[in-house]
Design a binder for these strands. Structure first.
Lengths: 118, 118
DNA sequence: TGGTTAATTATCTAGATGGTTAAATAAAGC
DNA sequence: GCTTTATTTAACCATCTAGATAATTAACCA
């Protein structure tokens, strides 16, 4: 990554389907590295790297039970991302409202045309 | 990028502070390439590349007025991202609730202790 | 102690990314 | 037509990334 502020790190970590799939799995509860690797066609070391990326981004944390290193989803960076998105949410809601208004006008115009046609 | 599904493309495009700053600028209205480049210390071609990334991700669209190519924010990919985030929102809200409950218990315990101390 | 299981580190490779400068395209204005 | 302004394309470079295989660390089990 080039800009390594926290939000960039979060987004870069999420910009990989394997990593998002790992998070989706972890959203159902803790799992070990092998459990997480199971659904994928890639090597264990590759998974290990993905986990390191997720951990550095704060999206997961890891315990230590005997030889297992159970992973857990951490939601903090997601909340930060949600906060960033919120600013744009206003915009798309505004745009949706304007679209609605426009469609309503179309609807009205059509009804008037229908009235004339009758 | 490696996984080039739409969501990965959106996230990868957003994972760069320069590109997010461009979007922030566009959230205030359309702008030309030179206007967008102005606040940054990087070359025009670099900006041009960033815009191409944003365009491919569907985060901006571009008009064509004489020699200017005005850029406009497109919110669709952000809404998709918001939809993806929504699944995790449930989780962090749950966790927050549980934390609240825990803190409430602590509070109660403390009050009991205070009562005993009196 | 030696073997098995879990996970990480080391080393390497191919391809993407973000930046550069120099050259090309496109339209406007004299 | 020639110059200026806006923007993109070309060619290049350094660094990062996602993957691989082989070797290593760590802990349990008998």
């Amino acid at each position: 990554m080039h800009g390594s502020d926290p939000l960039s790190e979060t987004l870069a970590a999420l910009a990989d389907p394997t990593r998002r799939a790992i998070l989706a799995r972890l959203s159902k509860g803790e799992a070990t590295v092998n459990e997480l690797a199971e659904p994928f066609d890639i090597s264990l070391p590759a998974i290990s790297k993905h986990l390191k990326v997720l951990e550095r981004a704060g999206l997961i944390s890891r315990g230590r039970t005997a030889q297992w290193r159970p992973c857990r989803l951490e939601t903090e960076p997601l909340r930060t991302l949600d906060g960033w998105l919120a600013e744009y949410r206003t915009i798309w809601e505004q745009r949706f409202d304007r679209l609605q208004t426009y469609l309503d006008h179309l609807q009205n115009d059509e009804e008037k045309t229908d009235d004339n046609a009758d």
